[in-house]
């Protein structure tokens, strides 16, 4: 079977389980909204300055919420030795990893959509000025977070300190991507698309290509004992 089709089947299975139980989605969504709420105590939410730091607030929420999703991605397969069964199946390791990344990507996009509405409502920020560009930024940055999250979720799945190790390992690697996503989102929220935006867009694209290639190439190493 085509590897991409295999990945989509894995994602379909995971999304079916997730939409039935909603355990990661509820936790990540609630966590992102709580962080948005906490930020309202750090600065004046009515200040017009909110738009200039809005990108940072949003991407911190998405990144922290994402960690909850990645932690569950592979950990969900541990009971009843489902991970071993998946690895023994004809699905290749890279397709399995890509499938998990697609699942995280979809779930994180849902969390982002909810957070954007909450953010617009509570902080009076008009994030819908450039909807297509904002969607492109969210899609590119979320894929980067999802593919690294899936790779490191797989790496840490069998560790005793899984919940502690995943954020320690993943956030430093995500920093170039988060910097680019924050800059671009700030520009869009302030309605100031500059020539620097193109540079940051390229950073997102290159990040996605490099880490997707590395994750697919190392999938066998990461997953198969």
């Amino acid at each position: 079977m085509n590897p991409l089709l295999q990945a989509l089947w894995v994602a379909r299975k995971d999304l079916a389980i997730e939409f039935r139980t909603k355990e990661s989605l509820n936790a990540a969504g609630a966590f992102a909204v709580v962080i948005l709420l906490l930020f309202s105590f750090v600065f004046d939410p009515a200040s017009p300055e909110v738009a200039t730091i809005g990108g940072g607030l949003l991407w911190l929420c998405f990144a922290f919420g994402g960690a909850l999703i990645f932690n569950r991605g592979f950990a969900r397969e541990l009971p009843n030795e489902c991970l071993d069964a998946l690895l023994a199946s004809p699905v290749s390791a890279s397709s399995l990893l890509a499938g998990k990344a697609i699942t995280s990507f979809v779930l994180l996009l849902i969390v982002e959509a909810v957070s954007l509405f909450v953010f617009g409502f509570f902080y009076d920020v008009r994030w819908w000025l450039h909807p297509l560009k904002l969607f492109a930024v969210c899609a590119l940055a979320t894929w980067g977070i999802a593919i690294l999250g899936a790779a490191f979720g797989a790496m840490t799945v069998n560790l005793k300190l899984r919940e502690l190790m995943l954020p320690v390992l993943i956030y430093p690697l995500l920093l170039p991507l988060l910097m680019a996503a924050i800059e671009l989102t700030n520009n869009l929220l302030m309605n100031q698309v500059t020539s620097d935006s193109l540079l940051w867009g390229r950073v997102l694209l290159v990040f996605d290509i490099v880490y997707t290639s590395l994750a697919v190439a190392l999938a066998e190493t990461i997953l198969v004992n």
Binding site: L148, A151, M155, N158, L159, K160, L161, M165, V168, L169, L173, V210, Y211, L214, L218, T221, I222, N225
Partner: peptide, 25 residues
């Protein structure tokens, strides 16, 4: 930290090698 967190030598080698490759970017 990752190396300290894994006891089994081959698993430690595999995962830290993968992180070394990811990190070099």
């Amino acid at each position: 930290m990752l190396r300290k967190a894994i006891d089994e030598p081959t698993q430690r080698g595999r995962l830290s090698a993968a992180l070394s490759i990811f990190g070099f970017v």
